[in-house]
Nucleic acid binder design. Structure first.
Lengths: 346, 346
DNA sequence: TCGTTTTTCTAGAACGATTTAGAAGAACGA
DNA sequence: TCGTTCTTCTAAATCGTTCTAGAAAAACGA
């Protein structure tokens, strides 16, 4: 835009008031078609590209964007098709409401920086995607009075969320494994601190993310006397699952089943088995969580959650004023494929 | 934020001028530490969460965000780890400059809507990620005077871009294949119109995206007398590569090599071979483009391009005023793995 | 002690739009 | 013809900051 060309410039050039030019763009029915045409063509002639976004945002109090907050680096966040599916669903609704998505990674190293970014962001609402409760950025949002919807159930009754019953979903997996006779599991967990180094064994307390913790509880519930070890190979990614599983498979004691708390990790575990000549579902059972597309082609037994719907629902709760229900529980389903089989007799 | 609490409210409460409150947040060295402390604590007490983003954006002329434009739905865009890598690099630099990323999918069905979204977006600059030149959204950006950097080389001398030499990169692939004796290829191409239906055979003119076209030219250059057919199974995705390759493998005439114009498509092709008991590199050669992480584990011969660097470079060109070079060519490299082998004698 | 510089703070004008309330004129019905 | 209702357009206030220029006070050097 040629510098200095504002709504006022155009108004003067055409010989009308600024309000009328504004209406030409925003409320076409408020003026005659002829005048509107005249204004628009003059604007084009002057190199005016339409009302300035910031000014509009200030005056109208609407930024026209929602923030998407997620932990850790972008690269890790989107290495999981699950995240991509969520975002796609959210984007769908956002588009419908003529709203953009503002990506806001909250690096775990620079907590304050993340909160700062949130403070400065011009957003009307925020989707909290797998961010641990209590993060200062969330307080910041609350302070700014920005509506937010989380993908995890919170404990606060007035918190909005769209989630699944993590415990019950994992319990389905647990029942399936128990029925197959498994009593010795390894659970592959997402853990930032294990990244870059050797896989580590964790206690339940050390598992950082609420949803992971709940899933583990769900397993324990249905398998009270099974041995369950928690192993992390790093961030939530294929490579972490691979690393974690390799470590487990090459150790003294192999479990009869490996549970990935996400499909990408479970797929990594399948890869580790493959290179060792082990057949999933026969030599060792592998199960996952999410049911991403690749799980189907790999024959991975997993828990399906309607991820795109989750994104859509979050979008609706955030943007659609008609939606009253602010706490939504989505259904899950056990999908049995070839990667799970009976535990070998000992 | 309690409604109506502005910088002015705080100023009055503390007994200073609005400018000073502003400085307390933005220029801490412009006032005494004691006063700053007093202002900040009073602000907190009043429930003031810091300067309003829109107002700041208007007054200072900086939105604090860059737009990321890409064609088609988000789900397709990010199904390719290549896109994720790019975004990760870009995000890294954006973070450094305290800038957010505004995602802007340009749906191919609603062209005007996309341009409109661009008009209303509060952004300082834009990264054009694989958007065909001539899209109205690009004109809109130009009109608004927003600096932009494309991931494709444009023909305009004053256009900014960070790209690879597509022709030369593909030529490396072509030389490799020619040396192995291949003279009958199928190229798997990204094509929106083939989505959802049967795979289709295209002519070079029908290939929509410039980069795809250039890559095909690169192949042709080094394999002047080879038979090269262009097949599309849909959008750029694993499933499209799978569908396209299945169609090819089950047809009357099998080529000796399949070229995926992206790794995800090539990996889909490998999957199609696997289910047919064919061994890549032996029964049929498969090569890809990009060198995403999964290419390594799958043993896919491919062209490596420094994708994260590409994102970083785009970020630098967009945000760093010190960077003068606005047209950057990044290096590529042929990575030979087990998926390519000599063409069988006929 | 007297200029001079530095520190600390302020007044008031932008930034570029949207909104509200209402004026002027046209159209309408009887 | 008159009063009423639409249609079309405008004036002026306002959104919440940041910026520029400069004033007042403090610190400094000699």
């Amino acid at each position: 835009m040629s510098p200095g060309v504002t709504i006022k410039t155009v108004a003067q050039a055409v010989g009308v008031s600024p309000s009328t030019v504004s209406n030409a763009y925003n409320k076409p029915d408020q003026l005659s078609a002829a005048l509107r045409e005249r204004i628009l063509s003059k604007a084009h002639e002057l190199g005016y590209a339409g009302p300035d976004a910031s000014a509009r945002a200030l005056r109208s109090g609407k930024a026209g964007a929602v923030g998407v907050l997620f932990t850790d680096k972008l690269a890790y966040a989107f290495s999981d098709p699950y995240a991509v599916g969520f975002l796609a669903g959210l984007a769908e609704v956002a588009e419908e409401f003529a709203t953009s998505l503002l990506l806001m990674p909250l690096s775990s190293s620079d907590i304050q920086g993340g909160a700062n970014a949130v403070r400065q962001a011009a957003i009307d609402a925020a989707a909290i995607f797998c961010v641990a409760g209590g993060h200062p950025a969330l307080d910041m949002l609350k302070n700014r009075g920005i509506p937010m919807v989380s993908t995890d159930r919170g404990d606060h009754p007035d918190l909005s969320w769209v989630a699944i019953d993590e415990v019950e979903a994992a319990a389905k997996l647990g029942r399936h494994l128990a029925r197959l006779g498994h009593r010795d599991l390894v659970v592959l967990v997402d853990n930032a601190e294990a990244a870059g180094s050797q896989p580590v064994e964790l206690t339940l307390d050390e598992v950082g993310y609420t949803d992971c913790e709940l899933r583990i509880r769900g397993l324990q519930k249905e398998m009270p006397d099974a041995r369950i070890r928690l192993i992390s190979g790093g961030h939530n990614a294929f490579s972490s699952g691979l690393a974690g599983a390799e470590w487990v498979l090459d150790s003294q004691h192999r479990p009869t089943a490996i549970v990935g708390l996400s499909d990408v990790q479970a797929l990594g575990a399948m890869e580790a088995m493959k290179t060792r000549g082990l057949v999933p579902g026969k030599d060792l059972t592998v199960v996952g969580f999410d049911d991403i597309p690749a799980a189907g082609t790999a024959g991975l037994t997993t828990i399906r959650q309607p991820i795109k719907d989750k994104g859509r629902a979050v979008g609706r709760v955030l943007l659609d004023p008609e939606v009253k229900e602010h706490q939504l529980l989505l259904p899950t389903e056990l999908v049995v494929r070839s990667s799970s089989g009976p535990a070998p007799r000992t």
